[in-house]
Simulated assay, not measured.
Amino acid sequence: MSLHQLVGRALVHLATLDGSRYTVVPGSRFSLKTLGEVVAYASLSAAQLARAVADSPPDAADFAAGSPAPAYEADLFRARRSKAEPLIAEGLSNAAYHLRRCIDHCRYTSSGIVRDLKNHPEHRPPLPRLTHAQYAALDKINRGGARRYAHLRGSRSIRADDGSTVHPTPFALLEKHRLVRVDTQGASLGAQGITVTAAGKFVLEIQRPTAKPPRVPGTVATRDKPDVRRR
């Protein structure tokens, strides 16, 4: 079921990307092609997994449950299982291989989109310029995810995966500009999962703070003074 959902979601993303303004960005053809490969590899993996299930002996469940069976039926089942095992192993191996290829092409697609938009800033979507606190909150969520908790008195709290608290003020801006996604399917008093969206990951990439140049040892920063000479 999860594989079929993966195929469906990949198809939706491919259709959305193909109908977006991204198609006019130079280099976008590569990302569209790799996303199409995600659909293909996910479909192959689902088909091979279904084939492995079909090759499994149909009466395996009865024997696994310990139901008594005549000796000749037990021999027949063992023969079927012996014949099916290499076919099942091959199907599972092929399904796993195509899933790995699917993951690789997801990464190719993501990195390709980021590269294209970095190289052609005129095509970037409007994104907010984050403060240090907002960037730190987004980066913390991106590293391990976060969860939002609703309390009985109506208040909410947000905790990152490492147990630290995410302040609600910078988080409100991240949620407003859809840099994070909140799983609203959770219970009203339960924890709601929070993940970083593609736009949020792009902001993390292009607004990454640069390191300050190291100070030369033994020097002290001083203000420039006018050159005053005695006469």
Rank of each mutant, 00 (worst) to 15 (best):
L117M: 07
L127G: 00
P125S: 11
I113F: 04
T131K: 07
C102E: 07
T109M: 12
L130I: 01
P121L: 10
Y108F: 13
D116K: 04
T131D: 07
R107K: 07
D116I: 01
V114M: 06
R129F: 12
C106A: 04
L127S: 02
P125Q: 10
C102Q: 10
T109G: 12
H120A: 11
G112I: 00
T109Y: 11
Y108L: 10
S110I: 08
K118Y: 12
L130V: 00
H105L: 09
H105K: 13
H105Y: 11
H120P: 08
Y108W: 05
D104H: 13
H132M: 10
I113S: 05
V114H: 11
E122G: 07
C106H: 02
S111I: 02
Y108H: 13
K118A: 13
P126Y: 00
I103N: 07
P125T: 04
P126K: 02
N119D: 15
P126H: 04
H123Q: 09
T131P: 06
C102F: 04
L127R: 00
S111P: 00
C106G: 06
L130M: 01
R129E: 12
P128W: 02
V114D: 14
K118C: 14
V114P: 01
C106V: 02
I113E: 06
C106M: 08
R115M: 08
N119I: 01
L130H: 00
I113M: 12
R129Y: 09
I103C: 05
Y108E: 12
T109Q: 13
P128M: 03
R107D: 13
I103S: 07
R107Y: 03
R115T: 08
R129K: 12
Y108R: 10
T109H: 12
C102M: 12
R129H: 10
P121V: 05
T131F: 07
H120E: 11
D104P: 03
H132G: 09
L117P: 01
P126A: 10
P128K: 02
D116M: 04
V114E: 11
H132Q: 12
H132P: 01
R129I: 11
R107C: 08
P121Q: 10
P128L: 02
K118P: 02
S110R: 14
Y108G: 02
Y108T: 02
H132E: 15
P121M: 05
I103G: 00
G112A: 06
S111C: 08
I103T: 06
C102W: 03
L127W: 02
S111D: 15
H123C: 09
H120C: 04
K118G: 04
P128R: 05
R124M: 04
T109S: 15
V114N: 06
N119P: 01
E122M: 09
P128Y: 03
R107V: 06
P125M: 08
N119G: 15
I103H: 11
S110F: 13
R107A: 09
P121C: 07
H120M: 05
R107L: 10
L117E: 08
D116C: 13
L127Y: 00
Y108I: 01
L117Q: 03
E122S: 11
R115W: 09
H123F: 15
S110A: 15
G112Y: 00
D104T: 11
